[in-house]
Design a protein around this nucleic acid. Structure first.
Lengths: 300, 300
DNA sequence: GGTTTTGAATAAAATAATTAAAAACAATAT
DNA sequence: ATATTGTTTTTAATTATTTTATTCAAAACC
């Protein structure tokens, strides 16, 4: 067999639904209409009609497609569950690298990984190709793929890149008009932080989510596809590290909240110098946390 | 047939060379040594030896591989010319988009493009996947690929991204020690610019190369894989536009040289404010040039 | 006669199958 | 005991095959 007929199967099922909503003896719409409605090509419509004909649910003669009897549950075709999306794959892949501390230089086995992640080898290949743009993997000379990161150097460079992008975001943010929605969002973030600070001893786990939201909000003012794409990976990696680095989590998060609040206050006061200083301070802490979590993990 | 035996063929030819440098009756080195020397696996060495044996160039019994007679020209295997590298493919692809002004939203046909560029469909697929990270192409819902850029919006965002990265580079550059090699390189660039300015009326075509060198030098102080990767695409796109936008080329280049010199002088004077201002001015001009060339081209 | 619909042929994309190459392992000769 | 070879297993690149999409001409309907 070559490609799957998932598309045909799901189309056939929706065609059964269409038949079900019609009366016996009625005519089915033309092929083109069905194709448009079901968002598939006419080829699929035709093969589905053929099957309906052989199942004796319709009588198909030329352009006359008459419903003979209503379809029942048994007529439906079973669907294979769809493979994870690219984003899911990305998450799973990065989680695998970070969680199992896969060392730099590891040869990646497309066949095995595709089984592991439950995606066609094809998709994984494409995914690795796209990751190669972030310097996380590389094509080997003798074929195959090699994992380059995740090293301390990678983390440093990622942090620096993050700093460049985020300082730019802050400069752009401060240039927004006073009636821009960003200001109300920052106010909301501020109260969220203050609330969490109150209950830090019990709810310190919630910080991870808040941190992600915080950085996303700040970066949301930058409407640039390159920056957005880069931020996606940055956030993913930093986020995952937060997830499983549990050393001094409470103190670390308490300190981070203060740093966030400092930046939020500076931003709301529209004090650009203080904002930049606060951002630099926080991003440096973040980088150190990332690095130390890497070191700790390497010792395990 | 499955994969090509190019690897075998070229290995066989180098093995012929090795035999040619030996005397008749001598023993060939062990398989592992040959494999190391030729940078292929032992499997290939063994199949090459097998062929040498059947061609009666060597006598192969156990670990005794005796050269019977010297190989001649007729024994060499013809090599298929190798497919273009990823970088070449990237260049050709971008050139194709920019040169033929392929509109945004065009469905890309992998089969046809792979023929056009003389690469396996497979490689093209991978290449498109990697380009998707730069938002230039996208996977279609019904399969296949769609070209998203190259629109004016894309150009604007690319220019802005470039501005962010290049201003960062300038800040880093100014922080370098006085004995860093960058300063002598800047001095050299300055005289190159002055020389070209003298002969601008005859040599204005040479500016394109000098521009590329100029931006590469400035960015070379940033040792960050993400920045480097991004710069590669940026430089490629800007460079190609320079290549075929011939309107007012001479005046434009003359003006750009002055902007470059202004920045170079500010940098060499280690005047950060003047440097940033000069950089912003030049990058804005660059952006306008890119945009106007896009507009002009659209009218053709 | 013109429009809509269908039939059939062609092209392309996704996946399986196939083959080349690499690596791992076991056996043998030095 | 070590170096080298023979054999087997795995992996990756490419072709082949099947499903799906598209195109174009013929036929049916108004």
């Amino acid at each position: 067999m070559a490609r799957t007929d998932d598309r045909f199967r799901s189309a056939y099922n929706t065609l059964l639904d269409i038949c079900g909503s019609m009366g016996v003896g009625e005519q089915l719409p033309p092929e083109t209409a069905l194709a448009d409605r079901m968002e598939v090509s006419r080829t699929i419509v035709r093969s589905a009609l053929q099957k309906l004909d052989t199942e004796e649910l319709i009588k198909w003669e030329g352009r006359r497609k008459t419903l003979i009897r209503k379809p029942e549950k048994k007529h439906r075709l079973a669907l294979a569950e769809s493979a994870p999306s690219t984003e899911e794959l990305e998450q799973r892949f990065l989680e695998w690298i970070l969680r199992f501390d896969v060392p730099a230089g590891t040869a990646l086995n497309v066949a095995q990984l595709s089984r592991q992640f439950g995606v066609p080898a094809h998709s994984l290949q494409e995914f690795l190709a796209s990751l190669s743009r972030f310097g996380l993997v590389e094509r080997g000379q003798k074929g195959g793929w090699t994992l380059l990161g995740f090293t301390a150097e990678y983390a440093i460079e990622l942090s620096e890149f993050r700093m460049v992008l985020e300082l730019n975001a802050i400069r752009q943010l401060l240039a927004q008009a006073p009636d821009h929605e960003i200001w109300t969002r920052l106010e909301a973030l501020k109260s969220d932080h203050e609330a969490l600070k109150e209950d830090i001893e019990t709810r310190y786990h919630d910080f991870s989510m808040l941190d992600k939201q915080f950085h996303m909000t700040i970066n949301s003012v930058v409407k640039n596809r390159f920056v957005i794409e880069a931020q996606k990976v940055i956030s993913l990696i930093f986020h995952y590290h937060y997830m499983w680095d549990k050393t001094f989590e409470q103190q670390r998060n308490a300190a981070a909240i203060d740093e966030h609040l400092e930046l939020l206050n500076a931003l709301l006061a529209k004090d650009s110098e203080r904002s930049e200083a606060a951002a630099v301070r926080h991003l440096r802490t973040s980088k150190e946390t990332l690095l130390s979590s890497l070191r700790d993990h390497k010792l395990v």
